[in-house]
Design a binder for these strands. Structure first.
Lengths: 312, 312
DNA sequence: GTTCCGCATGAATCGATAG
DNA sequence: ACTATCGATTCATGCGGAA
């Protein structure tokens, strides 16, 4: 069995009713369309993890999505309801979000969203903090730089899959650089991670005492990609994918953007499903993911990777 | 004018109706009593900053306060209403709080409290994150150590007093160097800070590029002083007092505990008002603050501090 | 006097056991 | 079934005693 070609399923018009019946059809697929519509066609209970960064509320109309802060909760609830349906019972939902400042005040649409999602049946298991180490500089009369975002964890039930050992970090003084190392590795070692989690990093750290991390993640924002409104660095979905899924599991992102979640899922040996509404971002995601397949193909042809490792 | 003796006002029974009419009477006073009662006697618009860490919700009845999570908001709202009244128009309220895990899920009483306080007229200006480097250890099947707490900033109006330059930090890792120094300095150089903010630390920073901090604070909890169960380290209120008040301003804490807020306010040359309901903590706070006065007295007698600096 | 090492100690949470 | 209590778990920090 060799690397199968990409099978990207393009549903530009969701009403065309392309019938997809089996669960398998959705694996490793990204779809162009409005996720509130496309989600209705995805079978129930097929996703192990949802990692997503929905478009932030913004009163400016032209931006991506452009949902008004006051309408945000009502806009999001139908989508979260569908996410609840497609997620497996022991799966996890991670939402990366941060409220905007509106009229000098933090808007309350995020905390209202938490309450509304609890009404839908979601359990608000935990709130992780993403501490952005190098956020954009800036100073305002009333506030400092905003250097953190919420990563809200929701579950359908109290028992869910979690593999804590995978994200253990070196102890003590190395704690400072714990996730920085992890982040750097993500950027350099593409597919070695398919084999064994974070690959050689783990072996480097063996012999040193490993400890469990906390619910505060120190990750640098990626400064490289300026073209899109890139939401999170690859190390952010990587951390949650490692923590909440096994290789072969399915990771879903209804707001795929430039494809970060799908790329990381692929790199870590997970299946991915992604939806993106803007064709510009969708095309970028296609290219980014296709690159991954090409890189793997080249490495295999050079004998750098053993064949059997690639079959997903 | 010499150092006036301590005038601690003991109101063990708030119904005794000790009449306090003038604003001045409340300066540098700590009161034993239920803050929801005592607050009603404090004049309006006399406080520049409230820094407080209310008792966290806890279903166990015995513990301090022991407010049930489901009753927390209704318990707190009368107090926040009084805090609104005593705070000056351009003053600030900082609440250090974190929701407990109840039944495997983060309870929503904190975010409900935010919404309810907005209904009272409070502006939710900002949410600072206190990143606790040494939080309580533990590993559980479904979560990691909780290493952060919320510091919610509320204001009465969009324009408020803020002195951002005072909390500027050396470029680089401001958390590790600056605030650790500050913590150590607080313990050793008590009143030198009265003169110029953080005192000699500033001179250490000369020559280094100073930058504004972010809304993420790295502070370690002060541990292993068996006598006190201080909720937050002195550097936490110190940071907000520096940021939101000038010397001579009044800092208020309705849940004084062992007196941390009052001690820091005193050390930084601000006036303090504190309320504590448990006599055990109240006595401890009395002792802690009295120590500060004694230290000042001794230093003056030794000629280590100039007299005029001490008049508050 | 330094530096180093051992140890107690937390605003915790879960699961099991008991009423 | 639901609530109350208890033991086990776990690591950054700062103190005291030792080298």
């Amino acid at each position: 069995m060799s690397i199968h070609p990409l099978e990207f399923r393009l549903i530009s018009n969701p009403n065309q009713q392309e019938i997809i019946t089996s669960e398998k059809d959705w694996h490793n697929t990204i779809i162009l369309g409005d996720c509130s519509k496309v989600l209705q066609k995805i079978p129930s209970n097929i996703v192990d993890l949802i990692v997503t960064s929905p478009p932030y509320a913004d009163s400016r109309k032209k931006t991506y999505g452009g949902i008004n802060p006051d309408d945000y909760v009502q806009w999001f609830l139908p989508i979260s309801k569908q996410m609840y349906r497609v997620l497996k019972a022991d799966g996890t939902l991670i939402i990366n979000i941060k409220e905007k400042v509106v009229n000098g005040e933090r808007h309350n649409y995020v905390i209202k969203l938490i309450l509304a999602m609890q009404q839908q049946g979601w359990l608000w298991t935990e709130e992780y903090i993403w501490h952005k180490k190098n956020s954009y500089p800036g100073k305002w009369p009333n506030r400092f730089r905003d250097a953190w975002e919420r990563c809200l964890q929701f579950n359908k039930q109290k028992k869910f899959k979690m593999y804590q050992e995978r994200v253990m970090v070196p102890m003590g003084d190395w704690a400072k650089t714990r996730l920085k190392n992890l982040s750097e590795t993500d950027q350099t070692r593409d597919n070695s991670k398919v084999e064994s989690g974070f690959g050689k990093n783990v072996s480097n750290w063996l012999g040193r005492t490993m400890v469990y991390p906390t619910n505060v993640l120190h990750l640098a924002t990626e400064c490289s990609n300026k073209s899109h409104s890139a939401t999170f660095p690859k190390s952010l979905p990587a951390w949650f994918i490692q923590l909440f899924t096994e290789p072969g599991d399915t990771v879903f992102d209804p707001f795929l953007g430039s494809g970060t979640t799908a790329m990381v899922a692929k790199e870590l040996g997970r299946c991915y499903i992604g939806i993106e509404i803007k064709e510009e971002y969708y095309q970028g995601a296609l290219i980014n993911i296709e690159k991954l397949y090409l890189i793997v193909k080249i490495k295999v042809s050079l004998g750098l990777i053993k064949h059997k490792k690639l079959i997903i």
